[in-house]
């Protein structure tokens, strides 16, 4: 079983690598389209700004989208989740991968930004990623932009209104987590384990 962790030079992606290793399914960091093509699952981490990350991911966009289309399990984390959407307002109006519909917007209102810390999940529909995870479980977030709740929302969280914490495409093989499973203790590790069970 080969998990490709997309390494495009940004973010602390070694935490994801460590988390996957801890649950018994090590992944390999790569930016090679051939390796991503051949992988049984793809993980797209992300920390930083939307525009620069999209620019780094652009050469891999085709292979990633093609593999998602083919039903390969895909997990986007934080900015990697936001990149699944059609577009983001961060840094202008920047196109994403367009795997799920919708736009990512900045938190507004009288809120401290970034939304940083442990917040609870409100499960909206069943998904294999949530096997064995109770409604209301806490996970670790750190982000300034978010997507609203819509038909693709698997779980929501509340910060100045509800936003999407976990999104999935219609087929369910591509999921995105706005929070960091690799930094969310036992709950997050269970999600990583659940993800590897989707392969």
């Amino acid at each position: 079983m080969k998990i490709a962790i997309v390494d495009y030079g940004a973010g602390n992606i070694r935490s994801v690598e460590r988390g996957l290793a801890f649950v018994g399914t090590p992944g390999a960091m790569t930016c090679d389209p051939g390796e991503i093509e051949a992988a049984d699952a793809i993980v797209l981490p992300g920390v930083g700004a939307f525009e620069s990350c999209m620019r780094q991911v652009a050469p891999l966009q085709q292979v990633i989208c093609r593999r998602i289309e083919a039903g390969v399990p895909f997990l986007g984390i934080c900015l990697g989740m936001q990149m699944l959407y059609q577009e983001s307002e961060e840094g202008g109006l920047i196109k994403g991968l367009g795997v799920v519909p919708g736009r990512v917007t900045r938190f507004s209102g009288n809120l401290k930004v970034p939304h940083m810390g442990w917040n609870s999940l409100s499960v909206r529909k069943e998904h294999p990623l949530l096997t064995g995870i109770a409604d209301g479980s806490y996970v670790y977030f750190v982000h300034s932009y978010r997507a609203g709740v819509d038909a693709g929302t698997v779980a929501a969280a509340e910060y100045g209104g509800d936003f999407t914490a976990i999104v999935a495409n219609e087929a369910g093989n591509a999921v995105g987590a706005q929070f960091h499973p690799e930094k969310s203790g036992a709950v997050g590790l269970r999600m990583l384990k659940n993800f590897t069970a989707m392969i």
Partner: peptide, 8 residues
Amino acid sequence: TANEVFIP
């Protein structure tokens, strides 16, 4: 620590 503790 990072190899076994998965919090920030």
